[in-house]
Structures are given as C-alpha cells and as structure tokens.
Write a protein that binds this DNA or RNA. Structure first.
Lengths: 357, 357
DNA sequence: AGTGATTTCTATAACGTTATAGTTTTGCCG
DNA sequence: CGGCAAAACTATAACGTTATAGAAATCACT
C-alpha cells in the first residue's frame, strides 16, 4: 500500500482557515484606525455615534471577539475566576454543585472558570500564591476555610479580590457565603428534643475547619438549654471516611451507658455510617434513636425514610460567591458581601418531595 | 464617624510591589539580550553551556515564571486544557472525580484546567465552538458522548486535540476512555443468573448516550445466552431522577406477570430508587429479587449490603484522558490513545472493603 | 595571516490590545 | 473671515514573548 518514496505530504488541504478577525480586520473593513475601532467598541466618549454604529456592525458581522491574550498582556486583566478546592474530606457532593452554580452565574459574563484542586500533600497556600503571583486570575473563590486561614490574610494583604465558602475567626472583613451551622446545630437538637431524645451524640466535622466550631457551639448550647445530656465523638470526624466513622460510632454506642439516642451528623456519608453502626447494635431508627443530618444532595430519604434531614443549598452559595467576586473585580471598591444561609426545617426523609438526582 | 470632607484617600500604601521578573529582568541581570535569555531557557542548541547555566541561575534566583499572556499572544499556545461537562443527569458522582483526577494528572505540567459546564438549555456544540474558535485551550476533554456526536466531528475536522470520556458510533479514530458497559451488562446478567434469577429488568441509561447501547447490548445478549427472560424499562432512564425512576419501576413491577426478579441499574441513584420501588411492593432484596448496580463512589453497600455492585474507576479515566490530550498537544502527530476499563467482579455490597468517602 | 566554517550571541519584528499624546476636522463666535 | 475651542479621529508605543535573519566572535586549516 505505502509507496517507498517518502512524499512530505502535510495536512491534506491547507484548510485555509477563515482567520479569526482582529481589530485590524475591522479597521481595514471600516477604513478606520485600529485605535479608533478599539475605542469605539468600548464606547469611549470621543468617538462619534455614527462611527460607533459602523464599527459595531462590522464587529458583529465578522464575528469579532477580543483576543484574550492581547487584552491580558496589555491590561493585566485575565477574565478568569479561579475556584480553589480542597480535595480531602466528604465535600464530594458540594464540589460539583459549587462548580456548576458558579459556572452558571458566570454565563453571559466575560469570565471563565478555572478549577484548581489541591491535594492533601500540598500546602493550601500553594495554589493561592501561584494564582496571585502569576496574576492568573482576576479573583479567587475558595472553600474549606479554617478559623485562622493564611490564605485569607494573604489575599487581603495584597488587595486581591476573593470570596470564601465558609467563614474565618480572623476578624477580617471579606466576602463570604456560609451555611449557618450554629443554627443548624440548634435546630437539630430541637428536632431531637421534640422526638423525645435525651442523650445526644455529635459526629463533628474535622476540627480544623471553621464550621466545626459553629456546629459544635450550636449543638452544645441547645443541648444545654434543653437540659439534654450530650457528647461529641472524639474518635472520628465527619470526613474520616464511612468505614472509620461506622467503627467509631459502634464503639462509642456500645460502651456508653446510658446509650445516646439522638445522633447529629454533618454529612451524608457520616449519616449513613452512623445509622449502619446503630443498626448493627440492633437499634431501630425512629424507635430506639433518631438522627439528624445535613446534606447538599437529597439522598438519605431513600436510604432511611425516617432520617431527619436539613438541606444545604450549595447552588445558592456558588451563585452568591460568583456575583461577589465579579462585583469586586469590576469595581475594586465594592464593599464585601456576606451571605449566611439559614437552615430550612428539619424534615423526615419520607416527607421530602426532594429532587434528588 | 465619617467626616464631612471627602478626602480622596486611595490605597493606604502604594504597596511598592516587588515587580514580577520578566525576560528583560534576567537580561539586565546577566548582561545578555532578551532573545538570548529566551533561547537559553528553552535550551536552544545555539547558546553556550556556560551562558545557559548563568541564565538558569538568574531565573531561579529571581523566581522567574513565563508570562502566559505573552507566550500565548506570541505562539498561540494557551497551556490550558478545557474540560467540557454536561450538567444534566446523574453523573454527579463522576464529575468531581473526573475533575480531581485530571487536575492531579496535570500537576507538575504547565497546563491549567478550565472547567466549562453546559446546561440543558444550551447546544452542546456551543462551548466547543467557543473554545476552538477563540483558541482558548490547547485541547478539550468532554464527557457524555452520543453515538453520533457533532462535537467529535467538529474537532476532528479541525485537527483540534481532544479526548472523550465515552465512545461514539462514528468510526472516527480519536482518543477516548470508556468503561466497558457491554461487559458490565454481561457480567451483571451472569451474576443474576448465578443468583438463580430468571426474569431480568434493565433500567437503561438515556438512549441518547453511547453507553446506553453498549449496556443494553450486553444485557440482551447475555440474557439470551443464559435463556433468561428480560425486559428494558421504557418509562424512565437512569437519569430521570430518583422519584421518577421509583415510580416507573413500581409501576412496571406491579403490572408484570411473571414479575422480574433481577434488576440492573447503571447508577447509584437508579439503584436506590429501584430498590425502594421493589421494597414498597413488599419484595425483599436478596430473597425475592437481586439488583446489580454500577457506581463510581461506593455508597450502595451502606444502603443495602445485599446489593450487587460493580465499581467504575472514574479517576483512572481522568488520568488517562489528561495524559492523552497532553501527549497530543506536545506532539501533534501522537497516535490516538484508547482505553477501555474492564469491569471488575460483581460483589455483594457487604463484602466491599470500599473506601467510600 | 587569510579564508571559510562554526559557534554564539543580538536586533528586529510581530502576536492583539489599549493608553497616551497628538493631529485633523468641524463648529462657533466675534 | 480669523481665531479658538471642541469633537473626532490617528500614530505610536508598550505589555512579554519568540522566530528570523543577521552580526560578531572563535576556531580550523591552509
């Protein structure tokens, strides 16, 4: 089949690409100077109305779109929002929802979303430093804040626009969106109290994260207020992984007298593991014990219809955060925006009409 | 508090930024020309060894990093890999795993990951066209391929580097990674046959996607080969949403005689819904019926330990796809790489040591 | 020492954009 | 109609990089 001669055959056809139009193309088309076209397109006051119309017409007709590299090189503006994500832990459900909702909020704007996960073996500061130093983004959104979060200080010091999913304890004024985990803790305790539960057990989030303290505070306060006994599990956290949680809970339940009859979990995985643990001890959900869980995607009502569920709307968070950073980028002096999602009602899974997916 | 006078107070301190080093900086530092520095850093053959060492030393000392906008403007290279994601359907679990594994594979390379989800109201071609036309990425990875996928044709025609998660039926040679859903269908049927099941029901993936045909083919073939009765659910697909699937399955089971006793589901959600449906009819899993499901993240073993589970390793897919496109970008004539994940064994959930999360 | 080849380095231009300063045109008023 | 201001447009340079062509220095060999 192949001839012995080596014909230097390149791409079959030179494919004569239509060549993407630039300002120069429009300038040639309209007989104007490149600078005029540029200024016309950004509606500068010193360009005549008729000219502007002519330029805009040519631009749409040719399908002109600014070359981002050109803009970026000249102005430093990247038109990029970076989302920096922790990969550890059980946030799995959160992640894709965050990404989708941010991307959705960015639709129709000039901004692209770049996603930069970092891994347990990395310093969380690494991606932040990289993005800021190389000016690879106009703003950063990050999640999994810690009470003392060096990333927040770093960006604040440099006046770099950012917003966080979660709060810190540093007293720095910045844009964030958070779920009110303290209120959640209180609501959960009240639901358990209403179900007649007397001895509560919290499977806490990892202590390093800000929201762990909020949830624990709410839990402890409300339990105290209702005169209920309570404990916080110390041998596992809600992102220890299902198996570890199950073991830790079973161990705890087996060895405590009196036995806790009201459980509180911060994640889907933890809830499933905890229910399994209790059931392995022969306890019946809704009878011997109740469990309240928070989840971003409705799953648990299928797992155990009797579970008590609070929904966290991560999509709202993404939307809020995206708008906050875009506003900050467009006008550098925009005041920081803070959002706090109040937990909705605590519902039995069986009552959820929930969309799941 | 605020004084009546409006002092035009800008940023407190001018913050005298250390100025990011450029080639010019290094040139000044070493007394060489900018072009020489550039060539030295990319190890061009016409630069002396001593000079190269001197330049490299200065570069690391100053913390030089090439300005991407400059490179991109000059060369057209973006150093960006775009991941284009469908937001519909139950792939939720897949998504974050794909993102993480791609990002992980890209670590240490010069490539950034940009994530571009598209929504049900959009033409799937939109993001592709945008990325290709504006040359915003060096390569594209996309998921949810369809048997006849215009995106694949578009990029092939333009010799744009890409790889897909999933195959097409178009006979176009390109890079992809896929889970062998036909083999999965066969293995699932065999597991159900081994469990003594005689009448099988498939809750199929949405017909528009390539893998639906594969899974159905395997299912039908193997059921025929084992002389088992079989049906394919027509009133819902695995991404109809939990509630819809539950309704459809309950309806189907209630009205068929003889009643199916072996179910096959392609996703976690579908499996949970199907089990719920069967149980609402009073059927007992492992006794009156068995169910095989495929899942990316181990969940189901907690839901019902008796469920039969096959694991799909999405992380492997992301890793493979990332390497494939990077290879294609670095050397445009790299042959297309294809990967097909063979399903592992069909295990009872109770036997899974699985990491969950 | 002279010639040519080889090695090593440099000047220049260009990618697409925009800020700045400057030029031309138009309009107005005395 | 001269003078001047305002309006409308343009030329130039620069952002940081790299491809190209060419210059300078070094070497080899007569």
């Amino acid at each position: 089949m192949t001839s012995g001669v080596d014909i230097p055959l390149r791409h079959p056809a030179p494919d004569s690409e239509p060549e993407r139009p630039t300002l120069k193309t429009i300038a040639a088309e309209t007989g104007l100077a490149v600078a005029t076209v540029s200024r016309a397109l950004k509606d500068a006051p010193d360009i005549g109305e008729a000219t502007k119309r002519r330029v805009r017409e040519a631009a749409t007709r040719l399908g002109y779109r600014p070359n981002r590299a050109g803009v970026r090189l000249r102005t430093g503006k990247t038109n990029v929002i970076a989302l920096v994500l922790s990969t550890e832990s059980d946030v799995m459900n959160h992640t894709s929802q965050l990404i989708y909702s941010i991307a959705n909020a960015l639709r129709g704007t000039a901004y692209h979303l770049i996603v930069t996960p970092y891994f347990p073996d990395q310093d969380p500061m690494d991606p932040i430093r990289y993005l800021v130093e190389t000016e690879s983004a106009d703003a950063i959104i990050l999640n999994q804040t810690k009470p003392e979060d060096p990333r927040v200080r770093y960006m604040t010091d440099r006046h770099f626009p950012f917003a966080t999913h979660g709060r810190t304890d540093m007293g720095i004024e910045h844009s964030y969106y958070d779920f009110d985990n303290e209120a959640f803790g209180i609501a959960a305790v009240e639901a358990l109290a209403a179900a007649g539960r007397k001895r509560l057990l919290l499977v806490p989030p990892p202590r390093t994260h800000s929201y762990a303290r909020h949830m624990t505070t709410g839990f402890v306060q409300a339990a105290g207020a209702h005169g209920l006994a309570f404990e916080v599990l110390t041998t596992a956290t809600s992102d220890s992984g299902g198996t570890a949680i199950e073991e830790a809970v079973i161990e705890h339940l087996a060895n405590s007298t009196p036995r806790p009859d009201g459980l509180l979990c911060g994640s889907t995985t933890a809830a499933m593991a905890a229910v399994n643990a209790a059931e392995r001890l022969g306890l019946v959900l809704g009878q011997d014990f109740d469990l309240v869980a928070k989840e971003a995607i409705r799953f648990l009502h299928r797992f155990r219809p009797d579970i008590l569920v609070v929904h966290e709307d991560v999509r709202e968070a993404g939307d809020f955060l995206a708008r906050a950073v875009v506003a900050a980028v467009e006008r550098r002096d925009t005041p920081a925006k803070q959002g706090l999602e109040r937990p909705g009602s605590v519902d039995r899974g069986r009552d959820n009409k929930g969309g799941s997916s």
